[in-house]
């Protein structure tokens, strides 16, 4: 019986060792290489540590959006990309996501997913050719997304609201 238990314990220790090994291997790239995708505390830290001068932050925020962003993701390798997630004021859950990625490269993530696009129209955003999409997200909530090229990168802003507030935010991102 004792031998049997020992065998189960030995196997359990093997699993623990595997988990520790994986965790360590997952952590190593962060130490070995600057610019690997990771979270940052503030926009200033991203600018300072990754030398991303072109990181854009909106000047306009509707009252429904909480400042500062709850999550900031950034990487410079294999390409420059950032993602800011903003929470809904007085509630839990993301309301606004602003993603910035090098042109022709995929954006980092899609934290607010438009499940059904109802309308997709070109939009003139302070002289930039933008694409505005309006649809529904989870729980049938109205969502909108706008994306455009700004210099060498593509900026995408997605919000759980009608496009009016989103356009104001997007306009504040354009210099």
């Amino acid at each position: 019986m004792r031998d049997k238990i020992r065998r189960y314990v030995y196997f359990a220790l093997t699993i623990v060792a595997v988990v520790i090994l994986l965790k360590t291997l997952n952590w190593l790239p962060l130490v070995l290489q600057q610019g690997t995708l990771r979270t940052y505390d503030s926009v200033e830290t991203v600018r300072a540590q990754l030398n991303i001068r072109d990181l854009r932050v909106p000047n306009y925020f509707p009252q429904s959006v909480t400042w500062p962003p709850s999550e900031i993701w950034a990487q410079t390798k294999p390409y420059v990309a950032t993602l800011m997630v903003f929470q809904r004021a007085g509630a839990i859950g993301p309301i606004l996501v602003i993603s910035q990625a090098a042109s022709d490269r995929p954006a980092l993530d899609d934290r607010i997913r438009i499940l059904q696009v109802k309308e997709s129209v070109p939009y003139d955003l302070k002289g930039r050719k933008a694409l505005l999409k309006v649809g529904v997200c989870e729980q049938n909530e109205v969502c909108s997304r706008i994306s455009w090229n700004e210099g060498n990168c593509v900026i995408t802003a997605t919000m759980k609201s009608s496009p009016f507030e989103l356009i104001k935010i997007a306009e504040s991102l354009v210099p």
Binding site: L22, L25, N26, L30, Q33, T36, L37, T39
Partner: peptide, 20 residues
Amino acid sequence: GSLLFRTVALFDSGRWMGME
């Protein structure tokens, strides 16, 4: 495959693949 999941993942291959 989302970022949110990758934060709790034991191992994210993307970190190693991007290494130089």
